[in-house]
Amino acid sequence: MTFKLIINGKTLKGETTTEAVDAATAEKVFKQYFNDNGIDGEWTYDDATKTFTITE
Rank of each mutant, 00 (worst) to 15 (best):
M1N: 09
M1E: 10
M1V: 10
M1F: 15
T2M: 11
T2C: 13
T2Q: 09
T2N: 05
T2I: 14
T2A: 05
F3I: 02
F3K: 01
F3Y: 12
F3Q: 01
F3E: 01
K4L: 08
K4T: 14
L5G: 02
I6T: 03
I7L: 07
I7D: 01
N8Y: 13
N8P: 02
N8A: 07
N8T: 07
K10G: 09
K10L: 14
K10T: 12
K10H: 13
T11M: 10
L12P: 03
K13L: 08
K13S: 11
K13Y: 11
E15T: 10
E15A: 07
E15H: 08
E15G: 06
T16M: 15
T16A: 13
T16R: 15
T17V: 07
T17D: 04
T17N: 04
T17P: 02
T17R: 07
T18L: 14
T18P: 01
T18R: 04
E19I: 14
E19Y: 15
A20I: 02
A20M: 02
A20H: 02
V21T: 10
D22T: 04
D22V: 02
D22M: 02
A23Y: 13
A24I: 08
A24Y: 09
T25K: 04
T25G: 07
A26N: 00
A26C: 02
A26Q: 00
A26I: 03
A26P: 00
A26R: 01
A26W: 02
E27N: 04
E27Q: 08
E27G: 06
E27R: 07
F30M: 03
F30A: 03
K31E: 03
K31P: 01
K31H: 06
K31S: 05
K31M: 11
Q32W: 05
Q32K: 13
Q32C: 07
Q32H: 07
Y33G: 03
Y33F: 13
Y33L: 12
F34T: 15
F34C: 15
F34S: 15
F34P: 01
N35P: 05
N35V: 14
D36N: 11
D36A: 12
D36S: 10
D36M: 11
G38L: 11
G38W: 13
G38Y: 11
I39G: 06
I39Q: 04
I39D: 04
I39H: 04
I39C: 10
I39E: 04
D40N: 13
G41D: 03
G41T: 06
G41I: 10
E42H: 12
E42A: 10
W43S: 02
W43N: 00
W43D: 00
T44S: 12
T44A: 11
Y45S: 00
Y45V: 01
Y45W: 02
Y45C: 01
D46I: 04
D46A: 03
D46M: 03
D47E: 12
A48D: 10
A48S: 11
A48N: 09
A48W: 07
A48G: 07
T49S: 08
K50F: 10
K50P: 00
K50S: 04
T51Q: 02
T51C: 04
T51R: 02
T51N: 01
F52G: 00
F52Q: 00
F52V: 01
T53G: 02
T53R: 05
I54D: 00
I54V: 14
I54G: 02
T55F: 07
E56C: 14
E56S: 06
E56H: 06
E56D: 07
